[in-house]
């Protein structure tokens, strides 16, 4: 063998070793290195964004965000500088949970797009936790100190997006709901975190679970030791939204009906081009549930907060 051939073989072996090392690093990255990555979140007042027309519209809207029931206490635009290099690295935030009297929030992304990194598919299901800052009047003034990671399934594989809802039972057990899937996954944040789901909780059998594409359980909150879930859109022939009260042990699931948008005018309700979707829910200290409903047509949106735990029909 001449030297050129020996060099070629050596180079090939070296490349093979390099590819093995890269594969191992990628495997470790997807299995765990991608968890608890320290980064930064940035914020601007929500009336100080790049879009001047939108800023003016937001300033005009502020008086409409307070009434006898609640008071608007500040808003932010959140962003991450890493979006310049990885456009789907931050955003798509579809659910949140507060800790520490609102000073810390955990939020998840519903991004489902995929990109290729070194010929490996990089999925987008991510969690982000960061700190919020308030002034003395509890007005929201800033965000900082973000930690992020990727959300995995029962087999420790990264979930392919479409996480739409999240609810905590106790301090460390968190459930997430999805578009198009009739089950929840749970995580123990004191053990494996979002690195591996610990349980799969069926919401309902497929006969009852609506089958509209790109819709699912978008509202999820705790009711005592159980979970209350609402499907995003009405069934085709129903005047209600499918809902469930789910025993966290998975033994009992009670099927309910959520009577949404009850105070919205018939003009909007009868207009099929205006979409009416249930987007979130939270349980207050007294057990009442506040539900986020949204009407929208193209990019013009209306949000409606609805309260009471008793808006259920059996």
């Amino acid at each position: 063998m001449d030297n050129d051939l020996l060099n070629l073989i050596a180079n090939l072996l070296s490349m093979k070793r390099l590819s093995i090392v890269l594969t191992i690093l990628l495997f470790l990255y997807y299995k765990g290195f991608s968890q608890n990555v320290k980064t930064e979140v940035y914020s601007l007042p929500w009336t100080n964004s790049k879009n001047e027309k939108k800023n003016e519209a937001r300033k005009k809207l502020i008086p409409c965000l307070s009434n006898d029931n609640l008071v608007f206490k500040g808003g932010l635009v959140l962003y991450s500088r890493s979006n310049k290099t990885n456009k789907y690295d931050f955003g798509g935030l579809s659910a949140l949970h507060c800790f520490d009297n609102g000073r810390t929030i955990m939020t998840v992304s519903d991004y489902s797009l995929e990109e290729k990194l070194a010929k490996q598919t990089q999925f987008k299901s991510k969690w982000f936790q960061f700190t919020l800052e308030y002034d003395d009047e509890q007005t929201l003034v800033g965000a900082k100190g973000m930690v992020k990671g990727q959300v995995h399934d029962l087999n420790s594989l990264i979930i392919r997006g479409e996480i739409e809802s999240m609810a905590y039972l106790g301090d460390s057990i968190v459930y997430v709901g999805f578009d198009n899937l009739n089950y929840l996954l749970s995580y123990d944040l004191k053990k494996s975190g979002f690195g591996c789901a610990v349980d799969k909780l069926s919401v309902d059998d497929k006969q009852c679970f609506p089958a509209r594409k790109n819709a699912g359980i978008e509202a999820l909150t705790n009711v005592g030791d159980s979970l209350f879930a609402i499907y995003e859109v009405k069934g085709n022939d129903n005047d209600y939204y499918e809902a469930w009260l789910i025993d966290s042990g998975g033994k009992n699931t009670e099927r309910l009906r959520y009577n949404g948008f009850v105070n919205v005018s018939d003009t909007y309700m009868n207009n099929s081009s205006i979409l009416k979707e249930v987007k979130g829910a939270t349980t207050l200290q007294n057990g009442d549930i506040v539900i986020l409903e949204k009407l929208f047509k193209r990019l013009i949106r209306q949000i409606v907060f609805v309260s009471y735990s008793s808006i259920l029909r059996k």
């Binding site: 409409c64 935030l93 949140l96 979130g280 506040v290 013009i300 609805v306 309260s307 009471y308």
Partner: peptide, 26 residues
């Protein structure tokens, strides 16, 4: 079992509002 819910806030249609999807309380 049905009780009329309370509407806490109805913003009306506005281009100022973005695509709100998550809610929690503290």
């Amino acid at each position: 079992n049905y009780i009329e819910p309370i509407t806490l806030l109805d913003t009306g249609f506005s281009k100022a509002l973005d695509n709100f999807e998550g809610i929690d309380s503290y």
